[in-house]
Design a protein around this nucleic acid. Structure first.
Length: 482
RNA sequence: CGGAGUUUAGCGCAGCUUGGUAGCGCGCCUGCCUUGGGAGCAGGAGGCCACAGGUUCGAAUCCUGUAACUCCGACCA
C-alpha cells in the first residue's frame, strides 16, 4: 500500500491540480514531448497511434458518406485570404507568413494555412462548371498553423493536425443537409468510438467561424467541468462561392453560385479524450480506439517461466485470431507490479495476468482498467469473454461520462446562478438568451463563461434572458472552455 | 500579448541569500539475485548549471537581454 501511494504521487491527483495532472499524464504515458518551437509538440509513437486510430475510424465514415480525400498546398497567397473579408479578419492575428525565399523577397507573401477554404475555393471555381459537377465532396487530412497566444498540448498547439472537409452543392438545402450530416458523423464517431458524450447545437454569431452563415458544434465536458469544442461543421452559404467565383450552369440554363460547407475535427480531440476518461492512475482509453486492447503479463518464478510463456503465447494467438488487439510484456527486468502500474498509466483497457496458479486452475486473471475489477476466466472462454468485456467497458465509459455531464449541467435564471455553476459547481449552465451579443458579452465578462452552443434539443426551454431578463429567443449552453 | 513563476544529469529536485573545481533521489550500465501491485545487494557511467552579453582574479550563484515551459487573464479548434 505504501508503494501504491508512491505511484500515485508520480501523477498529480486530478483533485489537487487538474492542469498538472493532464501534463503529468500525457508526458508519463509517452504520448508527446515538447518541441523546441513555441507551442509545438512532437507526437510520440504512442500518441500518434491514437491519432491514427481516430483517422482510421473517421476516414471510414467519410468514405461511407461519399467523400474522397485529396490534398491541397500548405501555402496560401495573401490575395486569396483577402477575398473573404470576415475570413481574413478572423484569422489575420494568428497567421505566420512566408515573405522571402533564400535572399529574395517574394512578390506576394504566402500564409501558412490556418484552414483551407480559400485555396480550395479557388480550385473549386475551376473544377465546377455544371450542376453535373455537384455535389463535390472532398476531405483532406492536413496540418494547419494558428499562432495562438496560449498553447496547451493537444488542445491548442501552434501547429495541429486535423481533417477538413470542403463540399460544394447546387442548392442551399443540399448544403445544409451536408452540414448536418457531418455533424451527425462527428457525433457518432465521438460518442461511439471515443465514448465522449456531446451536446449538439448551433454556435451563436459571436462564436461562429469567420465567413460562415451558420456554425454547428459538438461540445464535450472535461472532468474539470470545462468545455472542449470537439468538432465543427459550417454552412458557408454563397459567401465563399461569391468570393472565389464558384458558379455552375444549372438544369434551367442559369448560372448560379454553389453553396459550400466545411467541417473539421482536430488532434485536440485526443486532449478531450484524455480529460474525459483519465483518472489519478493515468490514461483510460476506450477499447474501440485503444491501439492495444489487452496486455498480457506472464508472471512466475524462473522454473515455471517456460510453461507460463507458452500458455501466454497461446492466449495471445487466440485473442488476436478473435480480432482483439493484443500485446504481451514478457520482459524479465521489471516486476509484475511495475507492469501493472505502467499499463494502467497507459490506459490499456484490459490486463490479462497468467501465472503458475492460473495454469493449474486452467484460467487467467482479467483486470478491467475502468473499474479495477479482477475476474478469473477459464482459458477456453477467453476469446468470447474478453470480447464481451471490451464492449462492456466501452459502454460503461460512455455511460459514466454521460452521468458526469448530466450531474454537472444545470438550468440557471440569472448571471449570479450561472457564475455559481461555472465557478463552484464546475460545469455547464443552460440559460435563456435574448439574442443580443451585448448580453452574451456581459455573461463572459462577469463569469468567464462563453456560450457553447444553442442545443437542437435542450432539456428544457428557458423563458427569459439570463443577462437582461427580457424574453429569451434562444436556450443556450454556457460554460468555461479550453 | 499583459501578470506571476520556472529553466542545474534522462526525470524530479537541492545548491544561489553570503561568488571559490557540481550534489541528492529515481532512472541508466555491469554482475548476482528476484517475479501475483512500481524488489534487493555490490560496482559504475552520466552535467559548458536554457542561451547571449556584462561585472569580477574567479559566476550555476550578482546584473542585463533573449528563448522555452507552467499557471492566471485577453484571443482561438
Amino acid at each position: 500500500m505504501a508503494k501504491d501511494k508512491e505511484f500515485v504521487q508520480a501523477i498529480t491527483p486530478q483533485g489537487e491540480d487538474f492542469s498538472r495532472w493532464y501534463i503529468d499524464v500525457i508526458t508519463k504515458a509517452n504520448l508527446m514531448d515538447y518541441a523546441p518551437v513555441r507551442g509545438c509538440i512532437v507526437f510520440k509513437p504512442d500518441g500518434f497511434a491514437l491519432w491514427e486510430a481516430v483517422q482510421r475510424e473517421l476516414d471510414r465514415r467519410f468514405k461511407e458518406t461519399g467523400h474522397r480525400n485529396a490534398y491541397f498546398p500548405l501555402f496560401i497567397p495573401e490575395s486569396f485570404l483577402q477575398k473573404e473579408k470576415e475570413h481574413v479578419e478572423g484569422f489575420n492575428p494568428e497567421l505566420p507568413w512566408v515573405t522571402e525565399v533564400g535572399d529574395e523577397k517574394l512578390e506576394e507573401r504566402l500564409a501558412v494555412r490556418p484552414t483551407s477554404e480559400t485555396i480550395i475555393g479557388h480550385m473549386y471555381s475551376q473544377w465546377i462548371q455544371s450542376y453535373r459537377d455537384l455535389p463535390l465532396l472532398i476531405n483532406q487530412w492536413a496540418n494547419v498553423v494558428r499562432w495562438e497566444k496560449r498553447t496547451l498540448p493537444f488542445l491548442r498547439t501552434s501547429e495541429f493536425l486535423w481533417q477538413e472537409g470542403h463540399t460544394a452543392h447546387a442548392t442551399e438545402q443540399e448544403a445544409r443537409e451536408e452540414t448536418e450530416r457531418m455533424l451527425a458523423v462527428y457525433t457518432d464517431f465521438v460518442e461511439n468510438e471515443l465514448a465522449i458524450p456531446v451536446l449538439q447545437g448551433q454556435k451563436t454569431p459571436s462564436e461562429q467561424f469567420p465567413g460562415a452563415v451558420a456554425t454547428y458544434s459538438i461540445e464535450a465536458m472535461m472532468k474539470d467541468g470545462k468545455a472542449v469544442q470537439a468538432g465543427t461543421s459550417h454552412y458557408l452559404g454563397e459567401n465563399f462561392a461569391r468570393s472565389f467565383d464558384i458558379r455552375f450552369l444549372d438544369k434551367d440554363n442559369e448560372r448560379k453560385y454553389a453553396h459550400t460547407t466545411s467541417w473539421g475535427l482536430s488532434t485536440r480531440i485526443l486532449g478531450a479524450m484524455i480529460m474525459v476518461h483519465g483518472d489519478d492512475r493515468g490514461l483510460q482509453l476506450p477499447p474501440r480506439i485503444a491501439p492495444t486492447q489487452v496486455m498480457i503479463i506472464p508472471i512466475g518464478p524462473a522454473k515455471a517461466r517456460a510453461q507460463v510463456l507458452e500458455a501466454a503465447q497461446q492466449i495471445q494467438t487466440t485473442l488476436r485470431t478473435a480480432g482483439i488487439r493484443t500485446d504481451m510484456d514478457a520482459s524479465e527486468d521489471v516486476s509484475p507490479g511495475w507492469k501493472f502500474n505502467e499499463y494502467e498509466l497507459r490506459g490499456i483497457p484490459i490486463r490479462l495476468e497468467i501465472g503458475p496458479r492460473d495454469l493449474e486452475a486452467g484460467q487467467a486473471i482479467i483486470v478491467r482498467r475502468d473499474s479495477g475489477e479482477k475476474l478469473p476466466v477459464a482459458l477456453a472462454d477467453l476469446g468470447t469473454r474478453v470480447d464481451e468485456l471490451l464492449i462492456d467497458i466501452q459502454a460503461s465509459m460512455l455511460e459514466n461520462a454521460r452521468a458526469f455531464l448530466r450531474n454537472h449541467s444545470r438550468a440557471v435564471h440569472s448571471i449570479e446562478q450561472l457564475h455559481e455553476v461555472v465557478r463552484t459547481e464546475k460545469g455547464f449552465a443552460l440559460a435563456g438568451w435574448c439574442g443580443d451579443a451585448a448580453c452574451e458579452a456581459k455573461v463572459k465578462e462577469e463569469t468567464g463563461a462563453t456560450s457553447r452552443n444553442i442545443p437542437f434539443s435542450p432539456p428544457e426551454r428557458m423563458p427569459t434572458c439570463v443577462a437582461c431578463q427580457k424574453d429569451a429567443a434562444y436556450t443556450v449552453w454556457f460554460g468555461r472552455s479550453y
